[in-house]
Design a protein around this nucleic acid. Structure first.
Length: 467
DNA sequence: CTATGGCACGGATT
DNA sequence: AATCCGTGCCATAG
């Protein structure tokens, strides 16, 4: 699982001096990978033991006291407490108990999709199939789809295509249900089959998934109903089922959606970069914003290494100096990243506090440029900092950080609520004028767009809903 | 005739 | 410079 050779770092100092690398854009996981490889390749860099707070057993920064416990626990601070925290018990694979996890000296191993699936499958497969399974699993794209075909695999391993197909079918049944499918439809079909063993699946679901997904996404329910010889109502049930239970991209994380907690580790592949919660989980307490670092302990330049530098022959010394330089740079960049994130989060959290506490309705429109101005940063800096990162809100939902810049979220949820509480199916223009009453002026066409974004049927097809 | 979705344009945002 | 988003116009369905 090692990544790169340590040698050939002799790209002279000027090279990395010129490259003032920014780690801001990196995700938690990406940063972890970066640090891991740096630790492995750079002898000047070391990770020192963490200190933990005696009060809350939270890891402490190298100097100073615990940022949480040092606060009197009853403070009614308006401002959120923002701090950088080392990653805690990070997922180490095999959530399926089996106490196997002796490894991980400091940084846990990030389980990638192929090995994640293989671990589940290995025990069930005959030995001669495991190799093939491993081979298949290495040919997955980021969504969990197969980038090769059963036929090719068969030819490569000199097996019958039918055997390979059977194997793939087996693999589809492991955790990201539908993994190893060739396309979304196939994946969803696999999910239907698996789910139907444990729960009630509406009739016609298979048929719809197999042949009418396109019409489905357009909400042409009547059309489908006609074609299948059933009722529009039935198709709507199917629609609800699909959107609640099926995932066309098995391995892709689905943020925000409240996922069935059955597969406990739907977050395995996306640990949030930032946590927001109330101090001690008490809503009366101020908000705590925790920016997670992918390491436990503190990075520093190994003093021993520095000291020995003088006693090293000249030809090696240059390389060593380079290593120290690189280590310093990395540490500095990490600090810079943390600091920038901290500043950003302070602003962001206090600005969108209502959203964090009350939910989607209270989201205020905000642009990256505005924040950039306030923080005296370039907007592209903000962009980098925001993109790809995820936040866990006090209500435990994990959402992309970019959601704080979603202009229309409040409007969309308002519309959603209006429709939920309607007594008579509202048309888009009715919604528009109702919104106008409340001082929100948007075009009728826009209402329609928002509505479909929320997956709500047009008014004229909404007649008979159960709730 | 009314309600809705598709396409595409222009301005804002990244 | 590339992308996203709200909106207007128009075709189509009921």
């Amino acid at each position: 699982m090692l990544i790169l050779p340590s040698q050939q770092t002799s790209t002279t100092m000027s090279a990395h001096l010129a490259q003032t690398m920014t780690l801001l854009g990196l995700t938690l996981d990406e940063l972890q990978q970066k640090i891991e490889s740096e630790l492995a390749s750079n002898p000047a860099l070391e990770l020192i033991e963490e200190r933990t707070c005696p009060m809350c057993k939270r890891p402490l920064p190298p100097r100073g006291s615990c940022p949480i416990c040092s606060q009197p626990s009853s403070v009614q601070s308006e401002d959120p407490i923002v701090f950088i925290s080392p990653r805690e018990d990070f997922y180490t694979g095999s959530a399926t108990s089996t106490g196997e996890a002796p490894e991980e000296p400091f940084v846990s191993e990030m389980v990638d999709l192929p090995s994640y699936v293989l671990r589940q499958a290995a025990a069930d497969l005959p030995v001669e199939d495991r190799l093939i399974a491993a081979y298949i699993l290495t040919h997955l794209d980021e969504d969990g789809f197969l980038t090769t075909t059963a036929l090719e695999v068969a030819r490569y391993h000199h097996r019958l295509p039918s055997e390979i197909t059977a194997l793939i079918e087996k693999l589809k049944r492991y955790d990201p249900y539908g993994v190893c499918s060739a396309n979304p439809v196939e994946a969803m079909l696999a999910q239907v089959d698996i789910l139907s063993e444990t729960m009630n699946v509406p009739a016609y679901t298979r048929e719809v998934v197999a042949a009418y997904l396109h019409q489905m996404s357009q909400h042409h329910y009547q059309e489908i109903a006609r074609a299948l010889g059933t009722t529009t109502q039935q198709i709507q049930k199917v629609a609800a089922f699909i959107s609640e239970n099926l995932n066309p991209f098995p391995a892709r994380a689905h943020w925000g959606d409240v996922r069935n907690p059955n597969s406990s580790d739907s977050q395995v592949f996306h640990q949030p970069d930032i946590l927001i919660y109330h101090l001690n989980e008490n809503p009366a307490n101020p908000l705590v914003v925790e920016i997670i670092l992918p390491i436990r302990g503190t990075l520093r330049v190994n003093p021993l290494f520095k000291a020995t530098l003088k006693q090293v022959e000249e030809d090696k010394a240059e390389e060593w100096r380079g290593d120290i330089e690189k280590a310093n740079l990395l540490i500095k960049c990490i600090q810079q990243r943390s600091n920038a994130l901290k500043l950003l989060l302070e602003k962001l959290v206090s600005f969108q506090k209502d959203y964090i506490l009350q939910g989607d309705l209270e989201m205020k429109p905000l642009t990256r440029a505005e924040i950039a101005g306030q923080l005296d940063m370039h907007e592209s800096t903000i962009s980098r900092a925001v993109s790809g990162k995820t936040v866990q809100l006090p209500n435990k939902r994990i959402v992309p950080l970019a959601i704080f810049f979603d202009r229309s979220l409040a409007h969309r949820t308002l519309i959603k609520q209006m429709i939920e509480n309607e007594d008579h199916p509202l048309s888009d223009s009715e919604i528009r004028s109702a919104l106008k009453e409340q001082g929100i002026e948007i075009a009728r066409r826009t209402v329609a767009k928002y509505r479909s974004m929320e997956g709500i049927l047009p008014g004229n097809l909404r007649q008979n809903r159960t709730r």
